[in-house]
């Protein structure tokens, strides 16, 4: 049997908002450890991996590993009807008929909404996601997630919006990270310097650089990743010319959401 409860719908609402525009289906893996979610976009360019440890839930009972593919668009629609302070219950029975039940209960007026979701096939997930060695990454940038989102928005508004393939180049050089994009009639560069942690201890921008690195990514994807900002105050971007870049948001003490994307390759 699987039975989970969260007394505030916000966390799950935010998770769905952070993934549902880019990924149409996801694999949800429930085990004694917690919930592991994985999704790959249809063009196999981006992968998202989420971990919510059992401690993230107010009640967590899972006596048998259970893996289910779910349609994220349908789930996002259902969760938009949930209020932030609704109590969520997630249930699947032992003799489960390939469905999972999500219940939203309003603590104020006692109204209960029940959604049953059928399992669906997923795009080849779950996948084995190795922990890539730290030494393989040429640079790591940590910054406030709101700042990263703002940068993505600025670049998107300047970048040629008619072109789905607007490219952003992220370069790390000493104590600076530059975001560069080309618009119709010019270019735009946003420079972020490493900030002194004494000034704004809660909002540092930290840059760890082993060697200079300059990589190109699809801005459209990066923009979607930046929606992880509702889950964490900080984002860490790990850059390597040989490995997928990782955009990681730590979720309090209870997990993380990681987006993986390879840099563009010169042909």
């Amino acid at each position: 049997i699987l039975e989970l409860r969260l007394v505030q719908a916000t966390l799950f609402k935010n998770v769905l908002e952070a993934i549902s525009d880019l990924f149409s289906k996801a694999n949800f893996d429930f085990s004694g450890t917690g919930l592991e979610l994985q999704a790959m976009d249809t063009s196999h360019v981006a992968l998202v991996a989420l971990l919510l440890r059992a401690e993230a839930f107010n009640h967590y009972l899972c006596d048998r590993d259970l893996s289910m593919g779910l349609n994220l668009a349908d789930m996002a629609k259902a969760f938009r009807c949930a209020n932030n302070d609704d109590i969520i219950t997630i249930k699947a029975e032992e003799d489960w008929s390939d469905t999972v039940t999500f219940t939203f209960e309003s603590p104020e007026d006692g109204e209960i909404s029940i959604f049953d979701f059928d399992f669906v096939g997923t795009n080849g997930v779950p996948l084995e996601i190795p922990e890539f060695p730290e030494s393989e990454y040429q640079a790591k940038v940590r910054m406030p997630s709101a700042k990263f989102m703002r940068i993505c928005k600025k670049l998107s508004s300047f970048g040629d919006s008619g072109d789905r393939d607007t490219v952003v180049i992220i370069s790390v050089d000493k104590e600076c990270v530059n975001f560069f994009t080309r618009g119709k009639t010019g270019t735009s560069t946003i420079v972020c310097r490493q900030t002194q942690t004494v000034d704004k201890p809660k909002e540092p921008t930290l840059i760890e650089m082993k060697e200079q690195v300059s990589l190109a990514f699809d801005l459209r994807y990066m923009n979607s990743f930046s929606k992880g900002s509702t889950l964490s105050d900080q984002v860490t971007i790990s850059l390597s010319s040989n490995l997928p870049a990782v955009f990681e948001y730590k979720i309090a003490e209870t997990g993380y959401i990681r987006y993986y994307m390879l840099p563009r390759i010169e042909e």
């Binding site: 196999h44 992968l47 084995e128 390879l262």
Partner: peptide, 14 residues
């Protein structure tokens, strides 16, 4: 000209 790299070679099915 550049193209977006694909992830299959880094992540294998479980």
């Amino acid at each position: 000209k550049s193209s977006q790299g694909r992830l299959e070679s880094f992540f294998k099915p479980v």
